[in-house]
Structures are given as C-alpha cells and as structure tokens.
Design a protein around this nucleic acid. Structure first.
Lengths: 198, 198
DNA sequence: ATATAAATTGAATGAATGTTCAATTTATTT
DNA sequence: AAATAAATTGAACATTCATTCAATTTATAT
C-alpha cells in the first residue's frame, strides 16, 4: 500500500546534479541549496534522501570513481590478445574520455582522501583494481606467447605510475600541442615496457 | 612619523597559522574566524592585512609552493658531480620531508588549479623549474663524462613523471612496508634511466 | 608633551550554510 | 471512495561565513 518508492531514482538524479554543479563551480562552492535550486525542488528533499551532506558527498565520490573505472574500460575478461592490450594502452594515454570525466573533481576528492580514511580506501581500491586488470591482460598475452613480459604485475603498476605522473603534469599544461607531444612520448614508454612496437 | 609597519611580519604569521590550521582541519574547513581565534586576534585584522580570503588563499599557495621547492632542494648551481646527482635522486625518492610538508594541502590546491588559471600557472612554474634544475644537473654530469644520458631534459622530465606518479599511488597506500618497497623500486627505475648503479 | 600613522578592536552586517519538523500533496492499494 | 505510505513542501532553526566601518589603542618622530 501507499506510494511507490522513488528513492533510488531520486538519489541518482540528485547525485548527477551534484556532479554537474560541482563540476562547474567546484565542490566547495556547491551547497545543498544550490543543487535543490537547479533541480527546482526543496532543499529538505535532498536531506530526506541523504541524511547528511557527508553522505551525499560519499555518494558522489562513488559515482565519480565508478565512472573513472568505466571510462578506462579495462575489463577483466578472457581471450585477451596483443591487439586488445595495444588498444588499451592507446586508450589509457588518450584523453578523449576527458569530456566525459572531470579531473578537477577527481583530484578534489583525492585530496580529501588525505584526511578521510574511508575515501582513501575507496581510491586505493580503484587504483589497485585497474592495475590488477592490466596485469591480467599482460599475463594472458604472455600465455599466448605474443609478448614476453617478465613481471606482469610490476609492469602494469609501472605503466600506471607513468600514466598518473603524466597526467599530473599535463593537467597543468595549457599548450595543446606540447600536451599531445608529451602524452605521445609517455605512451611510447609504456609500449617499450611491453616490448610492443606501436 | 607614526607607527612602524608590521605588515610583512603579521602577514607571514597569519599565513603560517592558516597553513597550520588548514593542515589539521582541511582548507575548506578553515575560516578567517578560526585562524583569528587560534592567533587570539580579531578577524578583522586578518582582513586588514589580506583584503579578501581569496588573497589570503593565494598567499598560502605561494607559501606552500615555496616550501615545496625548498624541500626538494634541487639547486641550480655549478660543479655538480655524479654523487650530487645520486643524492638528489635519493632525496626525491625518500619521504623524510613528509613531516615538513603537507601533501593533503598540496593536492587540495592542485585540484583548485583546475578551476583557477592563476593557480594552475603557479603549479606549472614550479613543476617546470624542478624539471629544469634536474636536467641541468644531468647535463653537468654528462659534461664531466661521469654519465652518458642522451636527452637530459626528457630524462629529467620522465624521472619526475615517475616520481609524481609514484606518490600519487603511494599516498593512498597505508601499509608502510609495501610503501617502502615500492618507493625503492621506483627509485631504481630512476637510477636505470641515468645509467647509475645505486 | 604633541602629533601622527599604523595596529588593533568590537560591534554589526547580510547572506548562506546544513538540518529540523510538521503539514500537505500525491500515488497506489483495498 | 477510503486508507495508506511515501514524496514533497515550506517555514523556521541556530551557526557560521566574509566583510564593513568607526572607535580605540599603541608606537614612533618631532
């Protein structure tokens, strides 16, 4: 009896709008009232679905990290070929996903992780799962004898170190040409590690 | 006539306290009132020395980036030997400066740079100057024929890519042992790039 | 001592914050 | 049509925020 629950639907709507506003104006400038205003609903409705702003923030972080995983689209599946591996590297070192994903917010919450263990754990999980998935791909290609990479786990980790370090610097680079050239050279390093010619 | 200006002294005092409070409670939770309370002064005095909170924030960022440069202590000087270079790498890949420097705040403002061009420019300048200084050290060692590194600038850049990428991941690592082992392996990579045995 | 200028205080501002709670609206079942 | 339960609103809450401005204190030079 009574009314059908809209909880999950509304929650997702709110999170998405939170993401949208925070992307534009920054997380620290995004209040519950602002989100409510844009959605043309009452602020107390947001509190109704997320008891505190903290809960809402955690939900947003989960949303962002899920997207982060998705965009990288490294799937744990069988039958990975050298070509799959190659395409994955190309994808990792391309920034076409940039339009879908907001680096600013990703780093904002990354910074927050330094003071909040829960967030730190979330990030760690994501970073580890990406490494694991890439290592698995490398192992499969090894098994097929398409490549000979001595330590798949270490190599996968190092490729992500390069990737993260690359974007850390490149995010501050405004010159598009310089950006592209550098990114390309970092990609080459990754290919070298895998013994693949691009 | 009149009173001697305390402007610079007070400003520095305020910045230092801002840093201290923000380090403990986070930048977004640090208000002018809080800083004033800890300093046992009136909030309006802070506004008197920094017209807006924005100005105060910029000052704090400058303070942090100056420290960042200092702690890495890569100096542009002549007469660099292979041993100096070696020690610099060891320093870069050690975290003894961790106690002096707050990563959380560094990343907080790094994240802020995505929305504020001014901050982005500041960070870019720092990142570039570090790379340039290291490249210069490598070149000097090349000239002494102590090492043979083909492209000093590219190599210096790549070492910092590894360094930044390493800390990006390691900051989320809570296991101290795993942390130390990984950091050591990344350092070895840097030494390999320089053709130096550690 | 007096003048001067900077340091510092204190009170007040309006706006925005997250959150509460009771009242009302709306959809669904019987 | 009546009952029910969730959705949604609206008003109110105390708190905190950055900032203002006039008043006062304090140090220095003449």
């Amino acid at each position: 009896m009574g009314r059908k629950s809209l909880k999950e639907i509304r929650q997702l709507e709110i999170i998405k709008m939170f993401y949208k506003v925070a992307k534009k104006e920054g997380y620290e400038n995004t209040s519950i009232a602002k989100i409510a205003k844009v959605m043309d609903i009452n602020p107390s409705l947001i509190i109704h679905y997320f008891e505190t702003k903290e809960d809402l923030t955690y939900a947003l972080i989960d949303y962002i990290l899920d997207r982060y995983l998705l965009i990288y689209s490294i799937k744990s599946k069988d039958g990975i070929t050298k070509e799959d591996l190659k395409q994955t590297i190309v994808l990792l070192f391309s920034k076409k996903w940039n339009t879908l994903f907001d680096d600013g917010l990703f780093y904002t919450f990354y910074a927050l992780a330094f003071r909040e263990k829960k967030i730190k754990a979330k990030y760690k999980t994501i970073l580890d799962s990406l490494r694991l998935a890439l290592a698995d791909m490398i192992s499969q290609c090894n098994a097929r004898q398409e490549i000979q990479v001595p330590a798949p786990k270490t190599t996968a980790d190092f490729i992500f170190v390069i990737l993260d370090g690359a974007y850390f610097y490149l995010s501050m680079e405004t010159d598009k040409n310089a950006y592209a050239l550098r990114l390309e050279s970092y990609k080459q390093k990754a290919f070298e590690l895998l013994g693949i010619t691009a």
